[in-house]
Design a protein around this nucleic acid. Structure first.
Lengths: 206, 206
DNA sequence: TTCACGGTGTGAAAAAAATAACGATGACAA
DNA sequence: TTGTCATCGTTATTTTTTTCACACCGTGAA
């Protein structure tokens, strides 16, 4: 089902969905491909092509039906049941991510958190149990957790990643400014503030 | 000088530099392209090609001289003098970004911060003055600020962006989960946690 | 010296991605 | 009805990006 759709398409589809949700909330019912395109800074052809891949269909006169299209995209992007997510590292960043997360991603659920600090482990954080990071490879499989958010210091990131991989994790959102090494089949998305900053700095004077 | 180098190359060069700094710190003197490649998860050919573009040259027997290469990359990526940066929005995220920033980017300097909350404006934050966000288009030009980090709520992001653009900002690192609209010539880098999360969720079950 | 080896720099080829092009379709006006 | 028009779905083309391939170079061994 996921074959034939590139990473970039998936990203754009996620953007389209976000826009469509806004439109839906404000009562819009139909959109043309170029509406979606301008809202998400891409081209109408690109939108049509992306939607073609997931067979979301529109009418040539009215365009795309917002609710139907949302259904198509969500059906494609989301798992049938909510996915469980582990959050590793409950420092400032980890807690901020957790706070941001709440209520925003109904299909993703932070089920467990982990930290190495004994002052944090063994308690509930936002109603979610926090365990010692050493229990990772044991607890993730038993809770059906396949993806993780990594908010540990850079120095620990690779070691924790190795544990995650051993624990069967298949997708990682990494906030540490390091390049993680994982086996094929494990997806890593790095939120690399430093690199983004330097890139923006560069092009701000291009 | 910046012509002919794609955004992706710039990103990779930034990654190479980070790796090279680590190597330098641990006393390494020479590296082959494939060392850099494996460390940054790309290919040796890609590394050589990227370096070719900035005319960083290596020897076929020893590889690349770490310090020389660092010099080449930094000369290419960095402005001759430190660039001034404005930070807009001093909520949890903004303060976290500021804290992360400190000491990590010698060529970039957060010169001014802005917020809309009167409890924050008029004071020093980390030794850096905080102004009302309405003073943006006035203060940015007079301080030579050409780039900004945007950590305001999504609902305000576009309005603030418009002010930034009027204030002459040419590069924005945007943390708000919205697609910003800017004139050509203004570079926007969006740190989009939601999109990254959904992308990782998708590929974690591919 | 002479050869083999492993790496660089770079043009050529391949793959991936974005853009353009176009027949088909349905709404609407005349 | 008939023609026009704007948009869709899809194929074709172009552009961009990555990978391959190989001549050339410096080193070390024989």
């Amino acid at each position: 089902m996921s074959v034939n759709v590139s990473e970039r398409s998936v990203r754009r589809l996620s953007l389209y969905r976000r826009f469509l949700l806004h439109v839906q909330a404000s009562g819009g019912r139909y959109l043309f491909s170029h509406d979606i395109a301008t809202a998400t800074r891409t081209s109408a052809a690109q939108v049509r092509r992306d939607l073609m891949a997931i067979s979301g269909s529109g009418s040539s006169s009215r365009g795309y039906h917002v609710t139907d299209l949302l259904k198509s995209i969500s059906c494609f992007l989301d798992a049938p049941a909510p996915q469980h997510v582990a959050l590793i590292g409950l420092g400032n960043l980890g807690r901020a991510v957790f706070a941001y997360f709440v209520g925003r991603h109904p299909n993703l659920r932070i089920t467990l958190t982990f930290d190495i600090d004994p002052a944090k482990t063994g308690r509930l954080i936002n109603g979610c149990p926090c365990h010692n990071v050493l229990k990772l490879n044991h607890l993730c499989p038993s809770h059906g957790i396949r993806m993780a958010i990594l908010t540990v210091p850079a120095a620990e990131a690779q070691a924790v990643t190795d544990m995650l991989v051993r624990g069967g994790i298949r997708g990682i959102v990494n906030f540490a400014p390091v390049t993680l090494h994982v086996p094929v089949g494990v997806f890593v998305e790095t939120m690399d503030f430093s690199i983004s900053l330097e890139t923006a700095a560069f092009f701000s004077r291009a």
